[in-house]
Structures are given as C-alpha cells and as structure tokens.
Design a binder for these strands. Structure first.
Length: 852
RNA sequence: GCCGGAGUGGCGAAAUUGGUAUACGCACUAGACUCAAAAUCUAGCGAGGUCACACUCAUGUCGGUUCGAGUCCGACCUCCGGCACCA
C-alpha cells in the first residue's frame, strides 16, 4: 500500500490479479447458494457509453454484494453482435461486417476490463459466431416442427431508410425503432413465429412477476398483448347465404347497431358486390384506403373517417332489423374480424362516422344515477333517433332493447352472449392486439434461416445434423433492400435435402431479437456442441435472479424472451414460465446540452457525450462508478456532473488516507483480534461502534432493494464518524483500536461493490493476503444490540408542533416520559394558560401534548 | 384524447412507510495553510426574523381525515414517459 491514492496503478494491479486468479469464474457444482446477476448484453457498436457504465456498475455492485455474502454468483457478459450497424459499415465503407464486429468487441471488452467489472469471461458469447447462431437455427427448426414457425405473405412494416422489414414491436407507434423513420406497409412473404399462441400466457403469467417487475414495464406488456374480452356475433347477409362475423366487447349495445362496417380488405367484400352496380366504386374506394395507409407519413395523425355504403343489408340477429353494410377506413382488418357493428350512440368512432354520413343514432344504454342505482327517467319516443352530442360509452341500463330492456350492462353482456351461443349466431371470444412475430430480415448480417426451396418439395427444413447454415465470408453490399445473400451463388445454390435435386437457400436472415431471446441460457453452458445448453446446468442457474437494463426494451426484448422461455418450457428444456425473477429498468444518463438548460441523453449529434475512457483516465474507474451509483436512485435519470465525480474521488481518497494512517497499527499482531465488551469501551468508541452497526444494518437493507445511492451516503456517514472519533493510531488504547478495526473493516468491505479496486488495495493494506475473495472478507452482520442507542432523545410536541426534546432511558415507562415532558421548561412555556386535553405517547418515538 | 409515473433547498437527493422535514453529496460563503493560486483542512449554508435566542413560514395548489400529513383521501395545476381509430 502506498501513502497516496493512485487509482491508475491500483486499478491496473487488481485487474491483473483478478484475471490471473480467474477470480470471477464460477462452476455450477458448488455447495454455496447460487445467484444469477445479469445485465442486458450490449451491441458491439465500438464504444461503451455512460448508459453501459451505469448498467454494469449496478450489476457489478449487486454481484459483489452477493459474493461477499457467500453466494456463488454467475455474472456473465456477451455480445449481441448481429445487426444493422455492421452492415451499414459494410455498405458505406466497404469493410467486412465480421472484421468490424470483432474489432469492436475487442475494444469494448478492453473498456469493460478497465472499468473492472467482475465478469466470468470464460462464458463470453457472441451471437455472430456459428457456434452460437447454430442454435438460433436449431430453435427455428424446433418451432417449425411444432407449427410455431410458418411462412405467409402479408402486409408487413417496411422501413424505407433501413430497407428492411420490422416486426410490430420494432415499429411501435408507426416509426422504426432504430432510425425513427415512418414505416410503410408492404406485401412480402415472411417467416413468422406464433407468439399469438402464447398471448394468454404472456398476460396471465404476469401474476408471477408482478411484485418484482416495475409497473411501468408490466403495463406496457399488458397493453402490447392487448387482451380484450367480448363476443363474436354473426350478422346474416340479406338475400345471400353469407354471414358477417363481428367482434364486440359491448354486445349490450347491439340494439343500437345502425350499420355493419367492413375493413377495406375484408374478404367478403367482392362476394357481396358481385354483379352490383356499386362494385367498381367500392373497389376503387378500398384501393384508395389501402394506398393512403401505405403512404401515411405521420403515424400520429388519425385520418378523417371515410366510408361507402355497399348497398347490401345485414340482419341483426337479436332484433331482426335490417342494417346497411358499409366499408370504411376506420375499421382495421388486422384486429378482431375486420368487421364491426356500428353503434353510434355508444361508441365515439361510430358516432363520428354516423355524423359524417347522417346515419341514425339510437340510444340503447341509459346512465345509472349514482345515489339510487336507478335508471334516469327516459322520456319521449326512444325508439326513434334522438339528439345526442357525443357518444355515451359507459355501462348503464338497457333501453330500447326489446325484452332486454331494464337489464344492467354487465348482466346483459353475459346473458346475451349465452343467448347468441344457444341460438347459434355467436359465442364468447377473446381477442388480442399482439400479432405474430415476423422474423425475416433482408439482411446479410444475421443468422440464416435454415430453409431450402425446392421446385419439387417446396420449403424444406435443413436437417438438424447439417446445422449450422454458415454465413458466407462476404457478399456484395449494395443497400438495395434485397438480402445481399441473394447475390452469393455458393450460398444460394444447394441441393434439396429431400430429393437431392438442385435447390435454393432462403436468403433472409433472422431478426436479431432472436439471438437475445435466449442468450442468458447459453451462459450456463456456453461451449456445448450438442445442444443450446444442458437443461441440468440451466436448472442450476436459471431463472435469472436479477436482470438489469434500460426500459427501451420493455416491450421488444422482454416480451420476446418471455415468449421464448415458454416455448423452451414446452420443448422440455426448462421447467418454469418466467425467465427473470426480478427486473430493474435503470434510468437514462443525461448531460447538459451546451448553451442550453436542457438535460438530454448523451449523444454524438448533441455533442454532450462523455467518454468512459476519459473519465477512467482522469479519475479512475472506482470514482466514476461511485459517482454513477451515488448521484441518483438507480431507476431515476442520472445527470452527469464532473464536479460530482470529483466529489467521489475526494471521498475515496479520504477513506484511503484513513486506512493508510491505521494500516500499520492494525496489521500489528499484538492487539489484533482482541475483542471488548461494549461497556469496556470509551464513550467515543462506543459511539463509533454503534454507528458501525447501524450502518451495516441500513446498507444491507438498502442493497436488498437496490437503493445504492443511499448505501453510498451511509458509507460516507460512517467515514465521517471515524473522522469524528479522531483517535491517534500511535497512542490509541486497545479498545479504541479494536473499534476502529471493526469500523474500517466494515467500511472497506461495504465499499467493495462501489469501488472494488480501492477496496482490494485497502483490504490488503489492513494486513490481508490474497484479495477479498480469498481472505476471510465477508459482508458484515449487524448486531442489533450494539446498534441500539443507550439513551433516547424524544421529541415533545404541543398540538403537533415541536417544542422541545427530553432525554430518556431505553426502558423508560410512559408515566416517566409524561412527567419528564411536562416538567420541561420550554414545554411549560408553551402550556401556560392552556388546558391539557390529552397526552399521546408513541413508545421510543415521540410525545404530543394536546391542549385547548 | 386515453393510460402510467413524478413534483421536497441554488442542484442531485434523504426521510425507519402516519411521528424531530431537508441525511449524504455538489455548488456557494468565510477562515486556516500559501508570496499567490490550486489542492487540502475548519466552519457556515431552506426562507423571514434576531446581536444572539425566541418565534413565524415552508415538501406543486386548494380542501379533507388525524393528537400529528412530504407520506392517507378528494379536486386542480405542472412536468416526464407510453399508446394511437384495437370495436
């Protein structure tokens, strides 16, 4: 140990030692309890940014905490290394995506080492290496076998800038998740995964993680799955044997249906119109709607409702009434059945549509008055259209609804659905907003989809024993929107696995979210050649105990990985429903944009980025990490402050100096290991001892909740208490030395999750050999009695206002307290001329004297 | 528009979940050291008030419950996120 704190030297020294001793490599066959701490794997863009630093600092703090508590901690890292930027680099600068990616990985793992993150590097994985993506292909074939993967032509989301397809999740809000460009619709043949088969489970299993995932994330997942309970109802088409099935959540409003409205793409449309004079008009209209939708620029704009009467009529199965069939732009083919019953009186959209085309608006639900739960008086001839200024969309009581009149909405919904079922014109139904996951990408830099197209046999899966289908070394990167693989003849041309005749390979590659859907299972068994992972090994480590990442993946990655886990469960690979026990979505790291008052996420274009390497060079990794964890609660936005980092290094330096002052005395074997009863200690020592144990208790509690900022604050307080104690190493009594030892040990060990290098150095300075993990360093345990105050200071209030404080022994009785409080001078002053109504005593806490 | 989350010093924040509001840090001010500055150390630091106390006011606003409210309830205001005609 040197006299001065030189982070650069200390950090290098310990990073080297950790690497040499393989300090963070773990095995599953270890008697200690296991803990799996996982951070979202990064895309190897080339450089770590502060968001990464924050992410890994949080995960590393928790890993060290658990490790020091005696857990066998799996803390792995890998690379989400397929994807767009590598291909862009190839298109723009002609570099090979593989070389570019490997370079970036090399640089970024260097940065991670310089940050001193305690990863088990023996388990490192990278998605772009064949030994990894072989298993993406294996999973795809398994899903194909089970009917969970299929191919279809459909209108897919197309990003015109990136020139590729996007999944629904990736084009949420109508904009590309990567570049923010408005997406278009294109008809393409694509491979899909049947995530909709798991829609129900994706909602129901939320119950298992409700307590440990943030409400923010769960809400977005629920919304994304979009479960909706209602009923299908068949409306017969008049003078035609066809039926139109609609989905509704409000069957209780069916007597108010004044039209049936179809989506422009509805398959029945051409049938309905066959031979009709309107056929050409309606088809032109449908084309116009589709074109408008495809070309839509601003996805947030809701277009004005437009429609056209087809001239055909449908029969309301409840009332027998004939209603016109319309086509309109506001009905979506993708949701429900692509047809709705239009109830203008009780649906805002139908109301707007009816107003525009002067369709009748018929009220069939009346509000319930709140005090009496009774129907408000309905006057006049309600079976006629009445004047309404807006739709009444709440539940109420049925009116103008034949025999159903007078029923409450809730009961009517149940009973009318039953009736529809009994009579055979409908049934209860649940629909979902979530769509199947389109995974085909017109890209080179991804896992090839293992399919061969044969003129004779059609789409043939590549046999398992021929995996992996390996990407060629390179291709021609033109950026045209077609997969570059199409131009690689050696790749495309193959033979049919079934009939051995010449055939062509699928040239689309998989969405990179496939790679990240199961990667953390691979960490459990990263070198397995025969399977994605050994289920036994996975069972040892998974589910993940704590997952940490940004909330930008609240829908995409986290819903895919939940789906993938359920599929793996059905394949017999795992035995649970949910892959992640606890999820933390960390806040953004922001910095002030120069010349403004705005704090925005760090970015190159805004010029407010901070380079982690520069911070490490200037202050050391430890100080940077302490600042990042101290400055804000983990889930809050973190505002970057160089002054804050300086504060962090100041604290580390002071702690280091304190250890330096004591290290000789504490390494001295003469008075090492002596223990004292607290009554043998000086008053100052007793105070320090109390602070030590209070701090241990509070930090331990805080760590369980990941309240890392307050943990650092507690450590600073403990340090301040050591300063206040102010004993001289040369002259201190054995009791004082023993107390200081306990406090310093606690300080150094509890500082480890935040500044591991400095802690290692200080721990060694205190006379321990072999590093924290090899010596007897253990997370300290608080002694409740030692943490207990000897004397209480009880605040005294008069009418809820603080007037004084009285000292009292721990075992003081209520009577004694009351007497002491009433005898207090300040209290008496506040009581003069008043009458005491009562005295409230909260044991150990407070006295409140109520006066009049 | 609908749905979530949040409003506490100059700033980041804390408050044992209804019981001493502002811990810890940043910034700032003064002092020590220095020829001087930086660094370091010491002290101060919500507002008003006072020589100093006392005292009064203060957790977005207004009201309520309670002996007691940053915390619970109601209404409103502001900011930040998410969703986009989902029948």
């Amino acid at each position: 140990m040197d006299e001065k704190y030189f982070p650069a030297a200390i950090e290098k020294k310990w990073q080297h030692r950790w690497q040499e001793s393989r300090a963070f490599e773990v095995k599953a066959d270890d008697p200690r309890p296991k803990f799996y701490c996982l951070e979202m794997l990064p895309y190897p863009s080339g450089y770590l940014h502060m968001g990464h630093v924050r992410n890994y600092s949080i995960g590393d703090a928790l890993s060290w905490y658990k490790r020091l508590q005696g857990f066998n901690v799996l803390h792995p890292i890998g690379w989400d290394s397929f994807g767009q930027p590598a291909e862009q680099a190839a298109i723009k600068r002609g570099v090979n995506p593989r070389d570019w990616t490997e370079e970036n990985i090399k640089h970024m793992s260097g940065q991670m080492h310089r940050l001193g993150i305690s990863y088990d590097w023996s388990r490192e994985i990278a998605a772009h290496r064949p030994e990894y993506y072989k298993w993406d292909q294996w999973f795809f074939l398994k899903m194909l076998e089970r009917g969970l993967a299929y191919k279809k032509t459909s209108a897919v989301n197309w990003c015109p800038k990136e020139k590729t397809v996007l999944s629904n999740e990736q084009s949420s809000g109508g904009i590309c998740w990567r570049c923010g460009t408005a997406v278009e619709k294109r008809d393409l043949e694509q491979w899909f995964l049947r995530i909709t088969d798991y829609a129900e489970q994706l909602v129901n299993d939320i119950a298992e993680i409700e307590a440990t995932w943030s409400e923010k994330v769960l809400k977005r997942q629920r919304d994304w799955v979009g479960r909706s309970e209602g009923a299908y109802i068949d409306f017969a088409v008049k003078e035609n044997d066809r039926k139109i099935r609609v989905f509704t959540t409000r069957i209780d409003t069916i007597y108010g249906a004044t039209a049936i409205v179809l989506a422009a793409e509805h398959p029945l449309l051409s049938d309905l119109l066959a031979g009709s004079a309107l056929q050409a008009d309606v088809e032109a209209f449908a084309q116009k709607v589709k074109a408008a939708r495809a070309a839509k620029q601003d996805p947030t704009v809701v277009e004005e409702k437009e429609g056209l009467n087809t001239g055909a009529l449908a029969v309301n199965p409840f009332s027998g009434e004939h209603v016109p069939i319309w086509v309109a732009n506001y009905v979506l083919m993708e949701y429900g059945t692509g047809a709705v019953m239009s109830v203008p009186a009780h649906d805002e959209r139908d109301f707007e549509f009816a107003q525009r085309y002067t369709l009748p608006i018929r009220q069939v639900i009346a509000p319930i008055s709140h005090d009496q739960a009774q129907v408000e008086p309905v006057t006049g001839a309600m079976d006629q259209s009445v004047e309404m200024h807006q739709a009444f969309t709440e539940y109420g009581v049925l009116i103008n609804s034949g025999d159903w009149g007078g029923k409450l909405s809730g009961a009517a919904i149940t009973e009318m659905t039953e009736e529809a079922h009994t009579k055979g014109f409908g049934e209860a139904a649940i629909t979902y907003r979530i769509r199947d996951w389109g995974i085909s990408r017109q890209r080179f830099w991804g896992a090839p989809i293992p399919i061969v197209y044969c003129d004779e046999c059609g789409a043939v899966p590549v046999p398992m024993d021929q995996l992996p289908v390996v990407l060629p070394e390179t291709a021609e990167f033109t950026g045209t929107g077609e997969s570059p693989l199409k131009s690689v003849a050696e790749f495309v041309n193959t033979t049919c696995p079934k009939c051995q005749r010449p055939a062509q390979r699928e040239t689309d590659t998989m969405d990179t979210f496939v790679d990240s859907s199961w990667y953390f299972f691979r960490y459990c068994d990263p070198h397995n050649h025969d399977a994605p992972f050994d289920p036994q090994l996975a069972a040892e480590w998974t589910p993940v105990d704590q997952y940490i990442g940004g909330d930008s993946h609240a829908v995409m990655h986290l819903i895919y990985t939940r789906f993938w886990t359920k599929v793996m469960r059905d394949l017999g690979l795992v035995s649970f429903n949910e892959p992640v026990k606890r999820l933390l979505t960390q806040g953004m790291v922001t910095n002030q944009v120069e010349g403004t008052d705005d704090w925005k996420a760090m970015s190159k274009s805004l010029g407010n980025g901070v380079d982690p390497d520069e911070m490490i060079a200037a202050y050391g990794a430890d100080a940077a990490r302490v600042f990042v964890l101290f400055a804000a609660p983990v889930e809050n936005e973190l505002r970057w402050s160089e002054a804050g980092v300086e504060g962090a290094i100041r604290f580390l330096r002071r702690a280091y100096t304190m250890v330096w002052r004591w290290h000789e005395r504490l390494s001295n074997p003469v008075d090492s290991r002596q223990t004292f009863k607290s009554e043998e200690l000086s008053q100052g020592a007793r105070q320090l001892q109390r602070k030590t144990h209070q701090t241990i208790a509070r930090i331990t509690r805080d760590f369980e909740q990941l309240h890392l900022n307050t943990s650092v604050a507690q450590l600073m307080e403990l340090f301040n208490a050591l300063m206040d104690f102010n004993a001289e190493p040369a002259t201190a009594s054995a009791g004082d030395v023993s107390t200081v030892r306990e406090a310093l040990y606690a300080l150094v060990i509890m500082l480890t999750p935040f500044s591991p290098h400095a802690s290692e150095e200080m721990w060694e300075g205190l006379g321990h050999q072999g590093g924290l993990l090899m010596s007897e360093a253990r997370w300290p345990v608080a002694d409740k009695e030692l943490a207990q105050q000897e004397e209480l200071e009880i605040p005294v209030q008069v009418n809820g206002k603080l007037r004084s404080r009285v000292k009292a022994a721990l075992d003081v009785t209520e009577d004694q307290l009351r007497t002491a409080a009433l005898a207090d001078g300040k209290v008496q002053a506040a009581l003069t001329g008043r009458e005491i109504v009562k005295v409230i005593i909260v044991p150990q806490r407070l006295i409140n004297i109520v006066v009049r």
